[in-house]
Simulated assay, not measured.
Amino acid sequence: MGESMARRQFGEQTEALPEPEETPDALFNQSLEKGIAVLRAFSAQRRSMTLPEVAEATSITKSSAQRMIYTLEKLGYVRKHPRTRRYQLAPRVMQIGFNYLAADTLIDVANPFLSELTNVTGETTNLTEPDGVDMVYVARFVCMKFVPIHMPIGSRIPMYCTASGRAYLAALPEAESRTLLLASDRVAHTQYTVTDLDEIEAQLVLGRRNGYASNREELFIGDMTMAAPVLDGERRPVGAVHVVAPTSRWTPAEAEARLAPAVIDCARGISSSIRTLA
């Protein structure tokens, strides 16, 4: 699969190309699609928006944006500031995400293992799950020590340059991991970010051999992580566990020697537990 085609498959915004005509999907609800697009348009960069800004951010007409905003406001998912008249998300939006966390069996299984991993290592531990070309934080146990980067539940990180992403990719068949890498916008977040496809795949080979993956300041300066994949009963990866090893406290050699074995044991414990539930 070509790189541009792979990126379109996983939802990246690219230059419009001629597409063959497709048979209309009678079951697909375009109004629901637009409503979700409006909710997703709000972010740290767009904390509040006017109606024209909503229409522009979602690439829908102003009349459609008005209907979506009106409905979402009536349902309690969006609210309008009484003075500025700008729209913003309401706390009710969090109910959807919380329902996912409450229903995810993997999180329930992983929590005691993550807690123990934090006790053993003295560092912050996390569980992430895949979504497209990203890994999403779904569980986190924070240590008492200083952590340079705050990543709350729901945060997203790219697979290609993070330990948890590489651990997940390494556990996939090579053809599948390559498809995801081709779909990724492999930009350099720091001077240490590896963006070359061959170099990343070489690291995945090491990850398959060693049972863990690492990230050394490739996403954030001062942040180093060690991760291992969580596998289901079919030996398919369903997530990854990683432990944060700030460069102010750990050298790469120390992290590999002391943290990597603990992360592998944690991921194996979670994997074994979810297989017994299947």
Rank of each mutant, 00 (worst) to 15 (best):
C143H: 13
N99S: 15
Q13C: 00
V136G: 06
E53A: 07
A139P: 06
G97A: 09
T14K: 04
I274W: 03
D134N: 12
T61F: 14
A278E: 15
N99P: 08
F10Q: 01
N126H: 10
N126S: 08
I107G: 08
R186A: 08
R235N: 14
R258P: 00
V109F: 09
N126I: 12
N126E: 10
R67M: 14
M226P: 02
S272R: 13
A6W: 05
A227N: 15
A228E: 07
E174Y: 01
L32E: 01
Y137L: 12
M5R: 09
Y160V: 12
P152I: 00
P24V: 03
G233I: 04
S43I: 13
T61R: 15
D108R: 11
S48G: 04
G269S: 07
A267Q: 03
F28L: 10
A57P: 07
Q45P: 15
E217W: 13
Y70A: 06
K74S: 08
P148M: 02
V205G: 00
V243D: 04
A267L: 03
W250Q: 02
I274P: 03
N29R: 02
T193A: 02
S64R: 15
R7C: 02
F146Y: 09
L169M: 12
R156Q: 04
A183W: 01
R40W: 12
P52I: 01
E217A: 14
Y100M: 06
T121V: 01
T124W: 11
I221K: 15
R40Q: 13
L27M: 03
V205D: 03
A245I: 13
R249Y: 11
G154L: 01
N29M: 00
Y70K: 05
R186N: 06
E234A: 12
L114Q: 01
A26N: 09
V142M: 04
A262F: 00
S48W: 04
K80H: 04
V238I: 13
E176D: 14
M1K: 04
D131Q: 10
T23S: 12
S184D: 06
S214A: 15
S184P: 11
N99I: 11
L72K: 07
G207Q: 01
S184R: 07
N119T: 08
A90M: 08
L231P: 07
P20Y: 10
V120C: 06
S31E: 12
A110N: 00
E199H: 00
C143N: 14
L204H: 02
S214F: 15
G76L: 14
Y212L: 04
A262K: 01
L17F: 05
L32R: 02
R156G: 04
E217F: 10
D131N: 10
I200V: 00
